[in-house]
Design a binder for these strands. Structure first.
Lengths: 229, 229
DNA sequence: ACCTGAACACCGTTCAAGT
DNA sequence: ACCTGAACACCGTTCAAGT
């Protein structure tokens, strides 16, 4: 019989990413993954120490799909472009958000990504102080995650009776949801434009940061310490 | 022997919340919860349909701990105060973030909270259009979640050899992390001030929204449709 | 060095039965 | 109406053994 291809950490992680893309991350178990690779469950443990390390590897693979920053762009445009790139990558691996958000510590790969992001701000002339707070404020958005909860209930049209009940219980939610559909070419609801909402939120933050930078913003801590600008 | 107190949905959910607060949400299983309540696992299924419904109930209980909005405040202050309130509640139940973020649809309780939040913006005179986009932009922040990844590696001091290696591999991360510690009274690192970072990010967004509102901002969709202001 | 088999201590949930 | 017992189809992981 033909000898099976040797297992490697790379092959294990890649198979896990594919499986998560296909079936969702909740269905990725060491046992199912082993079956997928035509191997007994315990064989995987020679290549990843445990399931947590497997998940780390999966996230790292996703982060490595994000293109490196573009050179010679003004900082705001460089950050914007890169985050929108990251968003496209994350849309291909929707499970990655939840996995990253459940991790306590960043992997070296994630740290490297953050490092390259910080580099853009610093190269653009932002102070270390401002850059620090901006990185916190952007948070997981630098990886291209929207910060939204719930995968948008829009799109599913409730029946009329249900709709009336909703409108009575949550008048403001319904009013705001209907407000968007006033686009003349759209029937009642293609739902929200996720790309627009993402860019709106991102630009809101980046424009605000630019304004702080231009005004020479410094945190009160830095001001109290009398650090040089 | 004394008859045990009758099980109710309320009692089941409350015990689950307490257990999650104590041991973390990953350790809340139907079986452990049953043992905690001195009952056989299957007894729980008379009060919650399944584990997903239990988690819904737990999140609802947390949301209900958030105080209702304060009346007679300008919209920005009302929103700010309420979100900071929500943050305090969420700090008591740190597991709630991950549970909410893994849910596809909001419970009626979550919808009610969102509805009351939208009401503040609308009462403050913001257009439905702007309010809609702002709700998306704030995202899970309205529930008091910070959007940060990783529970802040600061606080743990790496040994000198490790520190040197870190500084070489991630110079920008290290520079920015050290930038904050220039507070004269602080030794090398009490870590970041989470409350400050949260308020910084929140104010960055709320101030930006206020500016859009004052400038009569309207989305291009609304402009194209020629909707009345 | 790499893979296997059997086992341990868990899960959520169904079903038929008890009181 | 409410709780129980036994069972099913799963988990991640350890350990000792095979090649």
């Amino acid at each position: 019989m033909p000898q099976r291809e040797r297992l490697t950490r790379e092959r294990v992680v890649r198979a896990a990413v594919d499986m998560a893309d296909r079936d969702g991350v909740d269905d990725v178990s060491m046992r199912r993954l082993a079956a997928d690779l035509d191997v007994v469950p315990m064989a995987l443990y020679k290549h990843v120490a445990n399931k947590a390390e497997l998940l780390d590897g999966m996230v790292d693979q996703v982060i490595n799909e994000i293109a490196p920053p573009q050179e010679h762009l003004p900082w705001k445009q460089a950050v914007r472009t890169r985050i929108l790139d990251a968003r496209q990558v994350l849309l291909r691996h929707p499970w990655a958000r939840r996995v990253m958000e459940s991790k306590a510590a960043p992997t070296p790969t994630a740290l490297g990504y953050m490092d390259s992001m910080i580099a853009i701000f610093v190269a653009g002339g932002l102070s270390l102080d401002l850059t620090h707070h901006v990185m916190h404020a952007l948070g997981s958005r630098i990886f291209g995650f929207s910060q939204e909860l719930f995968t948008e209930s829009a799109g599913v049209q409730p029946d009329p009776a249900m709709a009336a009940q909703l409108a009575q219980a949550f008048p403001n939610v319904v009013a705001v949801a209907q407000g968007v559909e006033h686009d003349p070419d759209s029937v009642i609801g293609p739902g929200c434009d996720d790309q627009f909402e993402f860019e709106f939120a991102l630009d809101l933050q980046l424009d605000a940061v630019e304004r702080l930078h231009e005004n020479g913003w410094r945190s009160s801590v830095a001001r109290a310490a009398g650090t040089a600008p």
